[in-house]
Design a binder for these strands. Structure first.
Lengths: 333, 333
DNA sequence: TATGATTAATTAATCGTTTTAGCAAATTTT
DNA sequence: AAAATTTGCTAAAACGATTAATTAATCATA
């Protein structure tokens, strides 16, 4: 059975497509269609199982009711949870979501923006890559509705949803200090993304208060060589070159690999060494692996990102909003 | 700057839109446009940064170059990895993917099919829910290109990509038997989905060979109450009501919860009890949690699903294909 | 030289929906 | 009762791309 168009419905009733369209879009009141006619049209459209052709509608209106979501990697649990909530929320507003991955590659992020532009999404939610500022600038230039998520750049006027990285990191570091740690190592990505710098700053601030800051205990690693880097860093730190008594792992992936290496070296937390981390991993639920972690309000982050974007897409002019949600240290499993 | 249409390019050169369209679609050879003109058009289109309007194109052609992917839950690592590979592969063919979740709810699966139909996707890749057969039947009736993934129904003529559940389960059970286990419990979802039944059958077949099959050792649990169910089942089994010396956890989620409960009860694997499971979880990389698992070729599954679908979408008539890939037991971390 | 074939372009219809402008008839206002 | 307004509907023009049908010119063939 072929698709039923508005014309089919109109022909069946011997009226014009305009009338049918008006009624089906709820504009029959001010479009002045008699209630009698309106009822007949609604009934017939239903009976014929009429479904609007979205392409025609989008062509006419220039709007696709679709959101483009660009994340680093959908197979990373942090992002997959984020994506889940974004979708569930977007759906409620009648929007579909096209998800694409950058794999932390800036060129790929550029390409994905192109792809989504060519799909004519109405707006973007983007977790940007390290050097992706220029692409974000371009989108802003072109007036695309846009919300940055999780990460942002300074010196750029754009809506953003993230967490209180500085505060939360300070809290996590404070926790280790309260446990009696004196020499706490931070393992963090080498990157100029602001949210990472804030995590570092929070750590530094907490230590500085007690005059315990030692820049040699900050270990920077590379996303591309993370497995090797982590093995090396953890091994070196534990091999006694520098005496440390605490670890602050600054992301989900870093902590998972760090803990793995520690377990491999037969070093137990929290007995042999204390550790905290940013973000959660499924593995942390296991008693043997239990580690306090900074819990991000992923649900809320997704929800707010969608809400801010939809506001931009539906209202004419909206001032950019920076929304910093609260992540707190979860001391139990 | 407003969007550049084909008409703008045509006007600038003083030619008709037809000529421009022919050239830009590479039909200038058989469409017979002079090489001279073709070159001019290509150059001008590029200079004006012409991008085709996908809605107009889709309206005209009836094709959206979009695939609808329906999975249970994008935040589950098995599915998020699957989604990742499906996307990467689809992208190579110029297709975008819209992902939606069912949360194992059949009504929601029906709704998601509607949503994707209204988005006019060219085809579907679906991980169906337990009672979703009728929806799949409908799609087939309407001749939609369709590939089922991971799970399927019997008595239905549709393309499918999955793994050798029976063989792999037998292999996993065999492994426990080789370890000396005599009473092996299977924890599995209560469902009529074929792939689960195959996993059960593989387990049964392996045990039957040695006359060790005992139906009381099969524990069925419910997806909706999985956390409670798992805690109860593992506790009961270990509390001595039935003496068991091995566990076969039949999915990713089941095994994670099962191992968690065991750890909580301070029971160690493989020292205190042996265990194997179907599918992988990040936690399994940890030495303390190491457990042999059946490893599914997720990359290949995604790749083949996309390939089979694209074949259906591009050729006229294609016979349904059942593709059973090989999952093998990974005995190490 | 007339005829047919080839080449190089254009015209105009089409996909399905939305929406502006406008026409007649019915109703209200003066 | 004429004028003004309201009501109920339609015609037709977009939106942008594709393509079958056509024209017109050039070239080759008999």
């Amino acid at each position: 059975m072929a698709r039923v168009s508005i014309k089919d419905v109109a022909n069946r009733l011997g009226v014009s497509t305009a009338t049918v369209s008006l009624v089906l879009n709820g504009k029959d009141k001010d479009g002045r269609v008699s209630e009698n006619m309106a009822e007949k049209i609604r009934k017939e459209a239903k009976a014929m199982n009429y479904k609007p052709n979205n392409f025609a509608r989008a062509l006419r209106s220039g709007r696709s009711e679709t959101i483009g979501l660009i994340i680093a990697d959908i197979s990373n649990p942090f992002f997959s949870h984020l994506a889940f909530h974004i979708q569930e929320h977007a759906e409620r507003f009648g929007y579909s979501v096209i998800i694409t991955n950058t794999n932390e590659d800036t060129a790929k992020m550029g390409k994905m923006i192109s792809v989504l532009k060519s799909r004519q999404v109405d707006g973007f939610i983007i977790v940007p890559t390290e050097n992706g500022k220029k692409y974000i600038d371009e989108l802003l230039q072109d007036q695309f509705p846009l919300v940055l998520l999780d990460r942002y750049f300074s010196g750029i006027n754009v809506s953003y949803v993230g967490v209180n990285n500085f505060q939360a990191s300070m809290q996590a570091t404070d926790y280790l200090l309260k446990c009696g740690c004196k020499r706490i190592a931070l393992v963090i990505y080498k990157t100029n993304l602001r949210h990472m710098q804030e995590r570092r700053d929070g750590y530094v601030a907490a230590l500085a208060k007690y005059d315990l800051y030692d820049s040699r205990l900050i270990k920077e690693i590379d996303y591309r060589t993370i497995v090797n880097d982590m093995n090396r860093v953890v091994f070196d730190l534990m091999a006694g070159k520098e005496k440390i008594d605490g670890f602050f792992f600054s992301t989900n992936t870093i902590s998972t690999l760090g803990l793995k290496k520690l377990a491999e070296l037969n070093i137990k937390t929290p007995d042999d060494i204390k550790a905290v981390c940013f973000d959660k991993n499924d593995a942390f639920d296991f008693p043997g692996i239990a580690i306090p972690f900074v819990q991000q309000p992923i649900h809320e982050m997704g929800k707010r990102a969608v809400e801010l974007l939809i506001e931009q897409m539906t209202r004419q002019q909206v001032l950019p909003v920076h929304e910093e949600l609260t992540a707190i240290l979860n001391k139990f499993s």
